[in-house]
Design a protein around this nucleic acid. Structure first.
Lengths: 117, 117
DNA sequence: CGGTATCCTAGTGGATACTG
DNA sequence: CAGTATCCACTAGGATACCG
């Protein structure tokens, strides 16, 4: 029984890594479009500040989800990519993406039904 | 291209519903063990306060994930269960649970390797 | 180019006490 | 039993400015 309790909590591990306003979308970009430079990623995330992008990437790096490669040159060049371990998150991300898409459709339908009445 | 951008963001819908310190574990209890009364659920969530349990349940109810049934009697009786729509979250929850379990194992192995050196 | 540093605000979550 | 009502600490996230 207690074992069950402990088991249930494991969900939070995945959640804690994925939570963050920009983390899921960062991961999807890296998964689907491969390695990015810092500013390249920034351009794909309209509205994000440098500070936030740095912070989210650092946290993902600390969890071994994202790999950071620094090229020692001037001007600086830093590349980010999904780690092998990070790729194991894909099923979760895809499941969330699919659910989210249906969720949006559902909301629209509910809106429409409201309008028709 | 822009369509792609919009698509990517759908992940956040799922995330926003699942995020909350107690939500995933509440949902798993309701999914696996069925309908619960308020205090029954509270007993299964060591450490949660009444306020937090109420808040999380209300938020899940607002999103149509959880159903709340009030029995008009004294003393009060309120039952919570997963809605039909809430059940569609199961694949995500299971994917997160599985990942989290492997994640814990992986961490332990890394710890062991550290100790052995 | 790829960051830090500083300051700020809103919201999340907890402790505690009270209630129909 | 199943909640509210307060008050409070902490953090996430944003705006802005500066740096090697």
């Amino acid at each position: 029984m207690e074992e069950r309790q402990v088991e249930l909590c494991r969900v939070e591990d995945a959640l804690s890594i994925l939570v963050g306003k920009w983390k899921p979308i960062i991961l999807l970009h890296l998964l689907h479009e491969g390695t990015h430079r810092f500013n390249e990623l920034k351009r794909k995330l309209p509205g994000i500040t440098q500070k936030m992008l740095t912070k989210q990437l650092r946290e993902l790096e600390a969890e071994d989800i994202v790999e950071r490669t620094v090229f020692p040159q001037v001007p600086p060049k830093v590349e980010y990519s999904i780690s092998e371990y990070g790729q194991t998150l894909e099923p979760i991300l895809e499941a969330m993406h699919e659910w989210g898409t249906n969720h949006t459709l559902r909301k629209r339908q509910i809106e429409q039904n409201k309008d028709e009445q």
